[in-house]
C-alpha cells in the first residue's frame, strides 16, 4: 500500500512498446498478404527444376538468383515462406490452445489434478522444444510436424499460464471476489477474458515466433517439410553444400525466415517469451 491523495491519477499514454508492436503486426500482415499472393507473385510453381541456369547470382532476370538445380530463388522463397507461415500458424494455434489456454484452465482444476498436469508439463518443459518436436515427429510422422512443434513448445506456455492463473487465483482481488459470491466459473471466465483479451495477440505472436524457429530448425535437420512442399528451413539445408560460393542460396531464405520471426517477436511486444 502506498500513501496517496485523492487527486493522484496517472493518465494512459502511447508507449514505445505499443508502436513497436504495431510495426510487428503490420509486418506480419504484409507477410500474410505476400503469402496469400504467393501463387501469383511466384514466376514458377514450387520445385520447378531448370527454371534457369544453376547458381545464377541475383540479377535483373533472376532478382534473387537461382539454386543448384536452377530453381528460381524468388519463386522458391515465396512458396517456402507460404509453407513456413502456414505450418507455423497451425502450430501456434496448438501452442495457444494446448499451452496457454490449457495451462490456465488446469490451474483452476482440483489441486491434485492441476498439480499432476503441471508436473507433466514441467518435465516435458525440461527437454529442449527442438528435441521434443523431433521425438514427436519420430513417434508419429513428418506430416504432423506442425502439431509436433506446437506440442513441443506448448509445455513452456502451459507452465507459464498455469503459474499465472494460480497467482491470479490466489490474489487478493480473487479472494475478494469469492468472498462476495463470485463463483469459480465466473472467476475463470473473468480471468480468461482479461488475460486473453489483453494479451491474446501477444501470446499468439510469441508462440508464432517460437514454433517458426522450431519448425524451420526441424526441417533444417531433415525431420520436417518434404519436397515439393519445401519450407525455409529445408531450403537453407539444401543450400548447405553450395552456399560458400553462392551465398544467396542460403541468405535469401534465411533473411525471409529472420524477417518473419522478427515481425512475430515485435508483435509479441518485445518479450522473447518461449525460447526454442
Amino acid at each position: 500500500m502506498s500513501v496517496v491523495s485523492a487527486h493522484e491519477a496517472p493518465a494512459p499514454a502511447i508507449t514505445l512498446g505499443g508502436v513497436i508492436r504495431a510495426v510487428g503486426f503490420i509486418g506480419l500482415g504484409a507477410i500474410g498478404v505476400t503469402v496469400g499472393l504467393s501463387e501469383v507473385l511466384a514466376r514458377a510453381p514450387a520445385d520447378t527444376i531448370d527454371f534457369g541456369p544453376p547458381l545464377i547470382a541475383p540479377s535483373i532476370h533472376f532478382p534473387l538468383g537461382t539454386d543448384v538445380l536452377g530453381r528460381d530463388m524468388l519463386s522458391e522463397t515465396l512458396h517456402a515462406l507460404a509453407v513456413t507461415v502456414t505450418n507455423a500458424g497451425l502450430a501456434a494455434i496448438v501452442v495457444v490452445v494446448a499451452g496457454g489456454l490449457a495451462g490456465f484452465i488446469a490451474a483452476r482444476l482440483p489441486y491434485r489434478i492441476g498439480f499432476v498436469l503441471r508436473g507433466i508439463a514441467g518435465i516435458l518443459g525440461a527437454i529442449p522444444a527442438l528435441l521434443l518436436a523431433i521425438l514427436f515427429i519420430g513417434l508419429a510422422s513428418r506430416g504432423l510436424a506442425p502439431l509436433a512443434a506446437g506440442l513441443a513448445v506448448a509445455p513452456l506456455g502451459f507452465t507459464r499460464a498455469f503459474d499465472r492463473a494460480r497467482a491470479l487465483g490466489q490474489s487478493r482481488h480473487a479472494e475478494f471476489a469469492r468472498a462476495t459470491g463470485i463463483s469459480p466459473g465466473a472467476l475463470l471466465r473473468r480471468d480468461l477474458t482479461y488475460e486473453f483479451r489483453d494479451s491474446f495477440l501477444s501470446i499468439a505472436a510469441r508462440a508464432l515466433a517460437a514454433v517458426t524457429i522450431v519448425l524451420s530448425t526441424v526441417s533444417f535437420l531433415g525431420y520436417g517439410a518434404t519436397p515439393p512442399h519445401r519450407d525455409l528451413g529445408l531450403m537453407i539445408a539444401a543450400a548447405r553444400d553450395v552456399y560458400f560460393d553462392a551465398w544467396w542460396t542460403a541468405a535469401v531464405p534465411a533473411a525471409a525466415l529472420a524477417l518473419f520471426i522478427l515481425c512475430a517477436r515485435l508483435a509479441a511486444g518485445l518479450d522473447e517469451g518461449e525460447r526454442a
Binding site: 534465411a254 529472420a258 522478427l262 518485445l270 522473447e272 526454442a276
Partner: peptide
Amino acid sequence: APLIQIVAAAPVFCAALA
C-alpha cells in the same frame, strides 16, 4: 529490447551457418 529482437531473430542454425 528492439535491438536484441533484431539480432536474436535469426534461428541458431542460421547463425551457425553464418
